[in-house]
Amino acid sequence: MKRLFGLLKKDALVAFRNYFFLIMLIAAFLLIIAADFLIPEKASMDAKVLYTTEGQQSDKAKLLLGMLESEEGAKRADSKAQIIDSMKKDKNTIGIVVRQQNGEPAVEILLQGYENEKSKRALALSFGAALNPQNVDYSSIEDVVLQQSTGINDIPLNKSFVPLMIFVEPVMLGFIFLATLIFMEKEEGTIKAYLVSPIRIGEYLISKVVVMLLLALISTILITSFTVGLQVNWLLLLLTVAAGSIFGSTLAMFIASLFDSLSKAMVWLIVTSLVLTVPMAAYFVPSFSPRAVTIMPTYNLLFAIREAIFPSGSSMIIYQNIGGLLAMSIILYGASTLIYKRSLLRD
């Protein structure tokens, strides 16, 4: 323990003198500012609808107009020309012109041009259903709500970024920091000096993982406290982040064990960090969930962090995530210890 404690003190001081703590604090500060002041609490992603009428309207058409009037975000315009003008200014707007054609109401839909076929068909179908409600058998449509109060949709937009911030800062920054620390020591040759002392290479490496863990936990506590407040499940959040940090560190360690300089490893470090952050896309677009993304350890990690901060009752994801990440970390740690030993002995 005396040796490990000595290594920890040394690594923490080296990390401090290399401004790792300062960088982490500045990054946390910027993320807190972004979450609290820059990102709005609400942002509508729904398209605005502008509608107008041409000529006399039948009762059927009036029904449709009544539906549009009651729709949130829909506004009446004076003319088709006005709609087109507004659409040019706001790319998130679509237009609807209702007119009589051969005694029947006709709907002209004005689109921006980038809408996909599915969206176009869905719009056409909904107008068809509004004009001819007798053709739709609503009795065969049943809503099944699995979780009445997940609360996920009630999370303000700015706060919903917090799990992403915790994923990027404490976890991914740890990945980069650890790789930097190891390559710095490889270049200085200090590990050779320590290898001719009674310490084991495993102890030498684990102390760096612990320092990164410390950084990750401090950063998580700061970001969470100053954005979503203190009302989170701290135990589960810190355990999740700890598992993520250990995974990030051991992965960086594994990559570092395969190369003798940072320049040689750089491409692999960048590619790996990019791949690991792909699940961030799935966070805001849950429908983007190809198998290749969902099997990535960071996919579960991201949702586990959200679950710890904004509980929805799916705490199993947290335990699965912690178990999975720790199992992978043990494998990566064992492999890198072996490879590290061999590569050092080769020099």
Binding site: G6, L7, L13, K192
Partner: peptide, 19 residues
């Protein structure tokens, strides 16, 4: 092969804790 960011005495002190 010493830690360039540590002082001379720190380099020796941390190393001494390994024994």
């Amino acid at each position: 092969n010493v830690y360039k960011k540590l002082t001379g005495v720190e380099n020796l002190k941390f190393y001494s804790e390994m024994f």
